[in-house]
Design a binder for these strands. Structure first.
Lengths: 345, 345
DNA sequence: AACAGCGTTTAAATCGCTTTAAGCAGTTCG
DNA sequence: CGAACTGCTTAAAGCGATTTAAACGCTGTT
């Protein structure tokens, strides 16, 4: 119906087609079955056969066709990852997920979450690829949606706790992280410590709770002061202006995340308030921004690498070892003290 | 050989398996061939058949298996993208590539370039997926490597010019962009305009050339002053310290990119030099950083959306319309004036 | 009545690999 | 000596879609 004869998608123009398993088999005078076994490192073939096959495959520059292999084995060896392409923290997670997945012979399919592309679409794409497990980074989907997803494939939610019983969760203890921040500030003599919220979502809730609990623990109940905010710099700036306008500036402010903290920092400095001289500021995530020399932000690290490893490990337990009961892996966050915190004035 | 019976990767536990084409066909009493035609919107089936099939597919919640379809059609409808996961500019490109690809029925496979994962590995992965074309974002591979790649699949290099004749290039005119910056500064009365280089690579070379040419065009030959640098904040800071130490501060500094400009900005401000009061600073890329209120950096936008569209369009021309001669698409960059440039002191 | 033409449908081959059960030669054992 | 076993190898049946050529049921023409 279309005889334009588009460029051969398999290879260049009239070039020799990609070698197939059969070509390798023919070259050594064996069956494709044997070659397949050797190349997948399966038990069976003799040492001599192994060497010959490997040799021939290398000579021909053979690379297995994942598509065909996935179809035949009903195993795609693909991990689907839903990632917010704009988040520097996600970028770091993905980097480590790549490494961890590769080590166990899996590949990643990334599906980006953007302003125009919701989690639903992203997940559909991943399922069409027959991803064997889904890794959701910082998912904000409600529990029932996740539950439905969990029936289609094992789901590992990274970074955000959920009430849903049937999926794995890998996260750091957000309340503990904020607790460490408050401990640090209290240790520096701060008493009037405000907190800028992160909006809706479990993560935000946990961090807020961590703040309140820690304040009470230090007997600072009456200094508890929560400002409305979200995950953006803009929110941080708004919060900053609000504090400046209010008259009684706290001696320290803890923000939901680094981006928010940076907005806050900007607003304060622009108004001539010295950080950390007059006010200490703390963020959360230890993302690339916070490390910039011009911010040098005290923050909490979520240990991206360890979370990535654990997420892949959890997927492997389900896929390769048939685990079915859900697991929750909670890692301890670590405080990273940089230049935006100092003794209370 | 392994009777642990791992969790069924196709679906949850003992759940009904995913419906296949055959199931849809059986439901309406037609052949799989007809159903396939309808679902791919191909000519042939009657209106009545179309409706019945679509209905049945919807009822069953049928979703085609990309794996099988790729194998049978020898067309994966996959575009491979090599992306530096840490670059905010790449993030933006990916967002728009997603949109553009989806519109023409293709999906993206992202392969992240990281500290531990070179372009070679990334590309291998993409080819194993049978990606029909490769889109390289800001590739730094030497021409011969790209040439070899081009023989395996159509390659579209986004953002970086190359001498290699056989691939498509989508980029903005970097020399022109820097030229616009210099024009802008000259218009503000600046004469002593320095430039911080971006290290090796075609992009860096083009931008340096753009600087020199523009300076000459404005008769500022003797004010040409190029500082060594690269694409990082650290380099910007070093350049800043060098300028401060030298004694004769220029009235404006143009940096290779936004990250570098921000390092520069930090160094200057820390030393008490007012920007833009004493010195104007300009970056390049218009990435998320430059838009932060605390920087509000004058910069040059590369128009990510348009570049993404053009890249996908170029791929489509090759894949669907059989184009074989290479194309180079050069877009005009646009100056974004923000708060770090002002009249010369 | 035979045939051609047309729009619609389908049987069957195929894609490149995996997997299962069977085959085969050479022990070892009862 | 035949049965049972062992270690290696392979024929052949898929996996779930696409694709091609053929078949089918019509109508209209000679």
């Amino acid at each position: 119906m279309d005889d334009l004869n588009p460029a051969d998608p398999a290879g260049g123009d009239g070039a020799t087609p990609r070698p197939r398993l059969e070509d390798v088999a023919a070259r050594v005078g064996l069956s494709t079955a044997s070659v397949s076994l050797v190349l997948r490192n399966a038990a069976g073939p003799s040492e001599r056969t192994r060497r010959r096959v490997l040799r021939a495959a290398a000579d021909l520059g053979y690379r297995p066709d994942r598509t065909a292999s996935a179809l035949a084995s009903r195993r795609s060896r693909l991990l689907g990852v839903v990632v917010d392409i704009h988040s520097p923290f996600h970028a770091e997670l993905v980097e480590h997920l790549h490494g961890a997945a590769e080590e166990v012979g899996y590949a990643l399919v990334l599906s980006a979450l953007t302003r125009t592309r919701a989690e639903g679409t992203a997940v559909e794409t991943l399922l069409a690829f027959r991803c064997e497990a889904l890794i959701l980074l910082g998912s904000v989907s409600p529990a029932p949606v996740l539950a439905a997803l969990g029936r289609q494939a094992p789901v590992i939610s990274v970074g955000s706790r959920t009430a849903e019983a049937d999926l794995d969760v890998v996260r750091t203890a957000d309340d503990d992280g904020v607790g460490q921040i408050v401990d640090h500030l209290a240790g520096l003599g701060h008493r009037s410590i405000a907190y800028v919220e992160g909006g809706v979502g479990v993560i935000a809730t946990d961090r807020s709770r961590g703040y309140r609990d820690a304040m009470r623990r230090h007997g600072l109940d009456e200094h508890i002061r929560v400002l409305h905010g979200d995950r953006t710099e803009a929110a941080g700036e708004r919060a900053g202006r609000q504090l400046l306008g209010g008259g009684d500036l706290p001696t320290a402010v803890v923000a939901y995340n680094d981006q928010c903290a940076i907005g806050l920092l900007t607003a304060l400095r622009r108004a001539g308030v010295e950080v950390p001289g007059a006010v200490s500021v703390v963020g959360y995530d230890d993302d690339a921004l916070s490390r910039l020399a011009c911010f040098d932000l005290t923050t909490v690290s979520q240990n991206a690498e360890e979370q990535a490893r654990q997420a892949v490990a959890a997927a492997m337990e389900r896929l390769e070892r048939g685990r079915t009961e859900p697991r929750e892996i909670v890692l301890a966050p670590t405080l990273v003290v940089r230049g935006t915190t100092a003794l209370a004035r």
